[in-house]
Each structure stands twice: as structure tokens, then as C-alpha cells.
Amino acid sequence: MPITINDTPHDLPDDPRVSLLDFLRSHAGLTGTKKGCDHGQCGACTVLVNGVRINSCLSLAVTHDGDEVTTIEGLGSPVSPSEMQQAFLRHDGFQCGYCTPGQICSATAMLKEIAAGWPSDATDDLEASPKLTGEEIRERMSGNLCRCGAYANIVAAIRDVAGENA
């Protein structure tokens, strides 16, 4: 079975060493997903696989036959940006922009995770529905580093989208 990326099927690579990240960038030509550390520490490579965010650098492309992958290109486009993309623009949630595709993929999935009631290390009551506090956002986004330090505006952008959906 092929892998589906942003609704387009692609054949898997012959070399099993190819990471999902390298496959997206070099084979599928989708360079929006960025390679930062390549070790799962920075989150620049975050994509959604079957709706769930993962580090694409730590996953082999050959393991993803039949999976549906969504990258930053699949969330929105320059003419039709997603709500989260618009919020990052509105709040200036970046400086150099390198971590931004990962931040936006991560934030988009994160709001779904909160809606689904998944707890985090910042959740006071494990049995209650988590609330979208600043502390929760920072903890849940700790897998996405921003070396420019745009964190305050990233949190503002996420809160803005969450507020509109509340």
C-alpha cells in the first residue's frame, strides 16, 4: 500500500533507512517540514500521521504504508492559510521561521488532544477535562523549540485559535 501525504498517494522508498522526514523533503518534494536536530529533540519535523503528531525524523518511511500524513502544506496554503497559520501571522509567532511549520503542526494537533481530554504533566486533576491554560500550552508544546525565542507570541497565537473555537 502507498503512503498518502496531504491526500496524494506516494510509493514508499526502496531503502528502509529513509526517515519519514527525508522522504517528505527529498522524495515527495514537500520541503515545508524542516530538519532541525534529526534526533527528536527540537520538533521542527513534527507532522501528523493519521491525525496524531509525531517527530518524522524518528520514524522510518517504510513503516508508514497505508498511513495518512499531513504536513504544513496540507494544513493550508499561502492563499488559504489555516486558522492556526493566520494566528501565527497575526501574533508574529516566529522570527526566522525555521521551527514554524513544526510549531503549527504541533499546535494544531495539540488543540485536538486537549479537546479529546488527554492529560499532560501540567494537568492538576487527572480525572477532569484539561483546561487550556498558558501552563498547559507551554507544557504541551515543550517538544517544539524556537531558538529565536518567539514563545510568548506562539502561546498567544494558540490561545487566540483556542478562544475562537471555545
Binding site: G40, T46, R53, N55, S59, S106, M110, R140, G143
Partner: peptide, 9 residues
């Protein structure tokens, strides 16, 4: 432990 991306996998 880890991050949400890592715990998901």
C-alpha cells in the same frame, strides 16, 4: 517524560 510527539509514538 519526553514530549507529546514522542509519547504518541
Amino acid at each position: 517524560g519526553a514530549t507529546q510527539q514522542l509519547r504518541n509514538k
